[in-house]
Write a protein that binds this DNA or RNA. Structure first.
Length: 582
RNA sequence: CGGGGCGUGGCUCAGCCUGGUAGAGCACCGCGUUCGGGACGCGGGGGUCGGAGGUUCAAAUCCUCUCGCCCCGACCA
């Protein structure tokens, strides 16, 4: 077995902090800063100090090994990318201000790479001519730059960040889907090896595009994403994506005894929000027909949802079949409804109406009257307006699972990985083709697969910490053992500590040796903060019994272990959940 | 991009309203005591108060501009 990494704390560049900097609001950011892993250089841009880099390298190593094992090949593409490629794919204009653009001395346009579909597509189209050279999966672990509107949360959401991105090229859909499943399985292995609690969920494709995708979410209460999971079957999806089945007719929110009456206009001065109208007219929110006007590339449309529901814009976008979708501004609302914002309703509207299933079952509904300060009551969908019905609302806790009908649970997660089946989106746009069996030119079918390296490390902390500090899962831990001599002025203690130090390193463990002349309390606090899985405390007290103290970071108490049994004990502790090859 | 807030020693912050010689805690250096959960005493070093301009006898403090950073919002009428 190769020797482990030995480090004395008196020699290590490890500035720990008692207090956390004022700008760190999430726990991983605070703990990474306090434990001397990272330091901020500018908004969303960080230095990685030795302790932080060791963790990042651990994530990278696992990702690299599993990607390679799955058949992907590592490459390295540039960080500064020429504008031409981005203009060719069309994204130079649509990516927006997240794309940091720069010019060289000749005034030529470049950008800092936020992702590498264009470059890899260009690379492959230059070299790959035949279906015989396919499939191909190329990955890199590399720095990206996205000029986020609001960088925050340390490594969780920086502007500059390290990402593993992989791109696969195929001659057929079936082959691309096979690779998608291969990557899905690979990602499962990667995050399992990282020792994280996570879930793979169906996801929206967003800016990258493509036909379907999954996100890999580390479960943590502080996560930025909400995920919907079935309480009894494996269905799980990002709430942006999660489907809701068509409800059985007659099971709507309205009481069945509401009599069908003719519509009637009522004055509702200044009552715009669902809450105001509901309270004013004494009608439950579920009987309001919330009408939202959207501007799309197919012109204005109206979206109808029950007053107690939230619209899901991704679903609306799909239903309308539009590329762009944005809530209409005051002017556009006026143009479509003839009324100021807050009084739109479906009755008499001359633009396409898209309605959520739940609206169909409303009787005695209330909606805007399309004139200022007025609503209409006794609205009956079907009688008073016609709309295209579908699943348009955001999923909620307790909604039925679209697969099995059991109640949905909402949990929070941190997106650490995302896989996409892209299809021919980029290859077609960039005229990137190969020759098939019949000698015909066809665009590559592509997939792309990303993992946020730094975010994975941050997510591990969000998921594994306590009031004292980080509790590293062993595979990501910067060290295996944290060796603490209680008093470095006691020669017996030092002698025993040095012996433990060299013997554990000799056996292949990475050992952090706190040889500082500090009080025990200071060393213990730092040890808890840094979160190395095993702490070994050496003191004259226990040495009298020929023993040292072993404490697992994640466990409560410590126990005495005879020095001659220490190696065996450490091996036993670290073997639990020890990753293959790690 | 809109709103709000903050820039004072390496870190966390007070001082600003009401202008008058720049402070505390932590960290750092020295000496001593202490030594298993962020010790104590004594002594010490370190800050053009983000930058520029203005008002004033006098500006960290008031005014203007500027830069940086942080928070909220920028989809639910």
């Amino acid at each position: 077995m190769p020797k482990g990494y030995a480090m004395r704390l008196t020699r290590m560049f490890l500035p720990t902090l008692k207090e956390s900097p004022a700008d760190a609001e999430v726990i991983s950011h605070r703990l990474m800063t306090r434990s001397g892993m990272i330091r901020k250089v500018a908004a969303g841009i960080y230095n990685l100090l030795p302790m932080g880099l060791r963790v990042i390298r651990n994530v990278e190593r696992i990702v690299r090994e599993e990607m390679t094992r799955s058949g992907a090949q590592e490459v390295s593409m540039p960080f500064v990318l020429p504008a031409e490629l981005w203009k060719e794919s069309g994204r130079w204009d649509v990516y927006g201000s997240e794309l940091l653009r720069v010019q060289d001395r000749h005034g030529r346009d470049f950008c800092l790479g936020p992702t590498h579909e264009e470059v890899v597509t260009d690379m492959v189209r230059r070299e790959v001519r035949s279906y015989r050279q396919l499939p191909l999966n190329l990955f890199q672990i590399q720095t990206k730059f996205r000029d986020e509107i609001r960088p925050r949360f340390g490594l969780m959401r920086g502007r500059e960040f390290v990402m593993k991105d992989a791109y696969s090229f195929h001659s057929t859909d079936e082959c691309a889907e096979r690779e998608y499943r291969n990557m899905y399985d690979t990602y499962m292995r990667i995050f399992e090896r990282c020792g994280l609690l996570f879930r793979a969920v169906e996801a929206e494709t967003g800016q990258i595009g493509g036909s379907f995708s999954h996100e890999f979410m580390v479960l943590a209460s502080t996560g930025e994403d909400a995920i919907a999971g079935c309480s009894s079957c494996p269905y799980a999806a990002n709430t942006e994506r999660a489907e809701i089945g068509e409800p059985v007719a007659g099971m709507g929110p309205s009481p069945p005894d509401v009599k069908e009456k003719a519509i009637e206009e009522v004055r509702t001065p200044g009552m715009k929000s669902v809450e105001e109208v509901s309270a004013f007219l004494k009608v439950p929110p579920a009987r309001l027909i919330k009408t939202l006007i959207y501007s799309t590339d197919k012109g204005p449309v109206a979206a109808l949802v029950a007053g107690d529901c939230e619209i899901n814009e991704a679903k609306l976008k799909r239903a309308v079949g539009t590329e762009t979708l944005a809530l209409a501004d005051e002017k556009a609302v006026g143009g479509a409804t003839g009324a100021p914002m807050g009084f739109a309703g479906p009755v008499g509207l001359r633009i396409p109406l898209y309605a959520d299933w739940a609206v169909r079952d409303i009787s005695g509904g209330v909606a805007g009257a399309n004139s200022a300060d007025a609503h209409i009551i006794n609205v009956a969908p079907g009688r008073d307006f016609k709309a295209r019905y579908g699943d348009l609302r955001a999923i909620r806790e307790g909604d039925p699972c679209p697969r099995c009908g059991s109640p949905i649970e909402i949990k929070r997660g941190i997106e650490v990985g995302h896989i996409f089946k892209l299809g021919a989106k980029y290859s077609a746009a960039m005229n990137s083709t190969f020759l098939d069996e019949n000698g015909g030119a066809r665009p590559f079918i592509m997939g792309c697969y990303g993992i946020g390296i730094g975010r994975t490390a941050a997510a591990a902390i969000e998921q594994n910490h306590d009031a004292e500090g980080i509790i590293w899962p062993r595979p990501l831990a910067p060290f295996d053992c944290h060796l603490v001599p209680v008093n470095v002025n006691d020669s017996e203690t030092v002698k025993a500590s040095e012996a433990v130090y060299s013997s554990l390193v000799e056996k292949g463990y990475d050992v952090l040796y706190d040889d500082r002349d500090e009080r025990a309390g200071v060393k213990f606090k730092d040890a808890d903060l840094i979160g190395v899985p095993v702490r070994i405390t050496v003191s004259s007290k226990t040495l009298k019994e020929g023993a040292v103290e072993v404490k697992e970071r994640k466990a409560e108490g410590a126990r005495l272990v005879k020095t001659e049994c220490l190696a065996e004990e450490v091996k036993k502790i670290l073997a639990v959940k020890c990753a293959p090859g790690g």
